[in-house]
Nucleic acid binder design. Structure first.
Lengths: 253, 253
DNA sequence: CGGAAATTTGAAATCGCTCAATGATAGTGG
DNA sequence: CCACTATCATTGAGCGATTTCAAATTTCCG
């Protein structure tokens, strides 16, 4: 089995081998999906969550009228479906954007982990807060900026996250979204998504070649998008306090 | 000292007295604010979080251009500022919408709690996931619905949360937001917020009297808003598993 | 009472949507 | 390999929602 993409957990905690092992053992079943396959549909029971090993997945919410809004594009290393742990049935529909490999994580084992590996639990908590930051930024982008700016911001958010996986990642990637799906991310119609893509071309900040996207001037693009850059602290002071408390706990035991 | 509003924590966990006590002791300093006072501004260091005891507070994100988007209206019982625990400096600006009383919770004590009171930690985790659901729904609303529908959805979200605090709450409340602030919630301009408020009046689903709002037909209003209603499970199966693991842990100790 | 902020209204401009049609591309089965 | 089909990308034209600019009115607060 190839290595799991644990960069997200490792970012807030310097994982101990026992913790890596504990996380590895949370996983029960491995599943594969093709592009556009549903991983889980909204309304279905939401007992488990999913660890994305390979490929990209979309998380979308539906209006009563049937419209859909993609609220997150997940990359390898993300934990999918956790928001619906609070609900009886899933709020979000998860589907594969390209070929996906993921591991099912049972809710029960996840709960046990929370007690036995508090540093892992803290990492999960911080990861959820990080997702809130991203959602808040996206809400600001959709609420307050033009469609071209939103597209710029979206491409940057993907690029930033690719660099969190691999800091040396070039500002160039294949975007496995149709214009219809891009429209569902940006909160516009597919027709307007087409004109928006053209509009971004016209800025000269981005180059397109089929589904491949090259960010020609990241700094200027970020300024144009008007979304502030976020610097997530690796292993912050907060996390050290968890470590100390955990050691304390062991001494007491 | 009057009782703390612990309904949010109690929703996912049936808190033990020791856990209530532990949470109570997280708090260090009590602070008061008047309407429009800043609780914390974006860019400031983000070490602590805040437990809202009384009053309403807004959480907003700024674009590089200086526009602001209110991403959350906080009610008593909410924990404010947690997303920025992942950052060196705060992403969100927090300010009081009316007279506010809150308790400062130091990041360090919060971290210790995570290790010593895993059920409390699990409740915090689920609470963060709940916030993600709300943000996702709001993003869908702003991305995919008209300004009048967004306003309907926003009022409903407030009403639903007032009922989580007090299930017998009538569909009537004082909304301490100016039209400028409503515009910042809905992602529109203040001028259009005015016409939007008028537009909602015209539906006959809502009645206004100054800042007091009465939802005349909650069911029809929800349908109109096209935002699905979310049923958050109190003390779900997941949470019971945490409890069992905690007891197991004690036996091992 | 005076001044600042909030609400309300009007009119013109802009952005994004809808409807409609045309090519381009990719997958499928014969 | 080709015909067939469905999806995707692209473009045009008109419409509608929202913005912008500007001004009048009301409310709130000291």
């Amino acid at each position: 089995m190839r290595d799991l993409p644990l960069h997200r957990l490792n970012h807030f905690v310097r994982l101990e081998p026992t913790e890596v092992k504990a996380f590895t053992e949370l996983r029960t079943e491995r599943r594969r999906f093709d592009r556009h396959d549903f991983i889980r549909r909204h309304g279905e029971p939401a007992r488990d969550v999913y660890f994305l090993v390979e490929g990209w997945a979309a998380c979308c919410v539906h209006s009563a009228g049937g419209d859909e809004q993609i609220v997150k594009v997940h990359l390898p290393g993300d934990l999918l479906g956790t928001p619906s742990m609070t609900l009886g049935c899933a709020a979000e529909t998860l589907f594969a954007l390209n070929r996906v490999v993921l591991d099912v994580v049972s809710g029960e084992r996840f709960a046990e982990m929370f007690v036995k590996f508090p540093r892992l639990a803290a990492a999960m908590f911080l990861s959820a807060q990080q997702e809130r930051i991203w959602l808040m930024d996206r809400l600001m982008s959709v609420g307050r900026t033009s469609s071209v700016q939103r597209l710029a911001g979206f491409l940057l958010s993907i690029y930033d996250r690719l660099r969190m996986i691999d800091p040396s990642h070039a500002p160039r990637f294949e975007l496995p979204l149709s214009q219809r799906e891009i429209a569902n991310v940006l909160g516009i119609t597919p027709v307007h998504a087409n004109r928006t893509v053209g509009g971004l071309d016209d800025t000269g900040l981005v180059e397109r070649d089929g589904r491949w996207v090259t960010l020609l001037d990241v700094k200027a693009l970020r300024e144009f998008s008007s979304i502030p850059e976020r610097r997530f602290e690796g292993a912050p002071a907060w996390m050290r306090a968890v470590g100390e408390a955990a050691r304390e706990q062991q001494r007491v035991d």
